[in-house]
């Protein structure tokens, strides 16, 4: 490249390369970001309750549902093993969920959850696996004015009968 340009202007090919590389880079990054942005829905890990309401998956299809465990909705059913709770989304949508199995330690009311399972015709979501979702907040236990003992007690309270 430098051989072509007249010897008087040594900076010129350098600038040419800079412009070329920057242009190529901008085009590439824009293309990559556009592609990733277009993947928005396909690459989402789970349905929110409102998405499940507006555009429900086929009955019996294996999907994931994610949202918050509604306060006060968690209870154990008559068989002593199955738990039921409501998952709420960003608006007022609610999906009732049932699950029997081992619950991750972080799963509590008022916290995030991702349930893997299927939607049934009656609108309940039957989960065969539960994952707890942590939010972006990090708060020491002391600041919540809770000792470890109290925290354990609280966890027990919100988990009546699930032990």
């Amino acid at each position: 490249m430098s051989a072509v340009s007249p010897s008087g202007s040594r900076l010129k090919p350098k600038h040419q390369r800079l412009v070329l590389v920057v242009l190529a880079l901008v085009a590439l990054i824009a293309a990559g970001l556009l592609a990733a942005y277009a993947l928005r829905n396909q690459a989402s890990y789970f349905y929110l309750p409102e998405q499940m309401r507006d555009d429900p998956p086929a009955i019996g299809q294996a999907v994931r549902l994610g949202g918050m465990v509604e306060d006060g909705s968690l209870r154990t059913l008559g068989d002593g093993v199955t738990i039921a709770f409501n998952v709420t989304g960003l608006d007022n949508s609610v999906v009732p969920v049932r699950f029997s199995g081992i619950v991750p330690d972080l799963f509590v009311e008022g916290s995030g959850v991702v349930a893997e399972g299927t939607l049934r015709a009656d609108g309940t979501f039957v989960a065969d696996n539960l994952l707890a979702k942590h939010d972006e907040n990090y708060v020491p236990r002391e600041l919540q004015e809770m000792t470890e003992h109290q925290a354990a007690e609280m966890a027990e309270e919100t988990m009546v009968g699930i032990r």
Partner: peptide, 8 residues
Amino acid sequence: MREALDQW
């Protein structure tokens, strides 16, 4: 049922 893993 809780997992009750040892966090440490």
